[in-house]
Simulated assay, not measured.
Amino acid sequence: MTSRVAAAIDAANAAGRGAFVGYLPLGFPDLQTSIDAAVALAEAGADILELGPPYSDPVMDGTIIQQATQAALAGGFRLRDTFTAVREISGRVDVPVLVMTYWNPVLQYGVDRYADDLLAAGGAGLITPDITPDAAQEWIDASRRTSLDRIFLAAPTSTDERLDLIVRESTGFVYTVSTMGITGERAQLDAAARTLVGRLRAHGVEHACVGIGISNAEQVAGVLEYADGAIVGTALVRALRDGGVDGLRQAASALAAGTTS
């Protein structure tokens, strides 16, 4: 079965542009608004949606995303709400929906059960920032069985041996981290991202999308000079926080304009 995520990137490339991957936390400012926001993000030009269920210990997230996830948890978000949201969003827009989740909630829920419920809800796969392929056999098996995409992270510090494993075991795309440390906006995107994508290409990667630090259309365009997709999170969460769904829609449209520069 072909990857819906890879197909979305290929479709963007065939249209002469790079892919725009947009991240939003689920449950912020409340569950229904987060669903409407994800739909607006897709309608405004995101090729792939990346949804983050809130987690009590978000070790990789910057302040803006941390505050949003804390608000979602305080608002009563439950793990099962992830599948409710994915089901409704998938029913409203024809864009692949990925869940970006820390590994512990998946383990607690049950890896096979999580995969089955995500598939039933119309989800396309998981981005797992805190588990490496060598520790993820149970998830690799479940994703093969369900044809869900499994997206692992590559960092500038990854060894060649690790990159080889990441490229071999990832489907959809490899999530390429441009800077070490937490997410958030960077005035100057790290040259490390360009180098890392080059290393991934040498290891045979089909699709590499760069995230962490992209906050405007110019940076989107810059990343798409060498990567297959640009991942934006913090800038979208800020737009939703400050301007609601309409503010988010405007921000997403502006970012999407960078894919054709």
Rank of each mutant, 00 (worst) to 15 (best):
M1Y: 00
T2K: 15
R4F: 03
A6Q: 11
A8V: 11
A8D: 10
I9H: 03
D10V: 02
A15Y: 02
G16Q: 09
R17W: 00
G18C: 12
A19G: 13
V21S: 08
Y23W: 10
F28V: 01
P29V: 01
T33G: 10
A37S: 15
V39K: 01
A40K: 05
A42E: 09
D47F: 01
L49R: 08
E50N: 11
P53Q: 00
P53C: 01
P54C: 00
P54Q: 00
S56K: 01
D57F: 15
V59L: 14
M60P: 01
D61E: 14
T63W: 06
I65H: 04
A68I: 01
Q70N: 07
A72C: 12
L73S: 06
A74W: 00
G75A: 14
G76N: 09
G76S: 06
G76L: 07
G76Q: 09
F77A: 05
L79F: 15
R80A: 15
D81E: 12
T82A: 10
E88C: 03
S90Q: 07
V99C: 08
M100F: 13
Y102K: 03
W103C: 15
N104D: 13
P105I: 00
P105G: 10
P105Y: 10
L107C: 04
Q108N: 14
Y109C: 13
G110Q: 13
V111F: 00
V111W: 00
A115Q: 02
A115H: 00
D117S: 08
G122I: 11
G123I: 03
L126A: 12
L126C: 06
L126E: 05
L126P: 04
I127H: 06
T128H: 02
T128N: 02
T132R: 11
D134Q: 14
A135G: 02
E138K: 09
E138M: 10
D141A: 12
D141Y: 01
A142V: 10
R144S: 15
T146K: 00
T146L: 02
I151D: 11
F152M: 05
A155K: 09
T157C: 10
R162K: 13
D164Q: 12
L165D: 04
S170Q: 02
T171R: 13
G172P: 05
Y175M: 04
M180T: 14
T183A: 03
G184P: 01
G184C: 09
E185T: 14
L189E: 01
A193D: 05
A193K: 02
R194D: 13
T195F: 10
L196Q: 03
V197H: 14
V197K: 08
G198K: 08
L200A: 10
R201F: 09
R201P: 00
H203I: 00
G204S: 07
V205H: 07
V205Y: 08
A208P: 07
C209Y: 06
G211Q: 08
G211F: 12
G213F: 10
I214W: 13
S215M: 08
A217T: 01
A221F: 07
V223R: 01
V223C: 06
G233F: 07
G233Q: 04
T234Q: 06
R238Y: 04
A239Y: 05
A239M: 08
R241M: 07
R241S: 15
D246V: 13
R249T: 15
R249H: 13
A254R: 15
T259H: 05
S261A: 15
S261L: 14
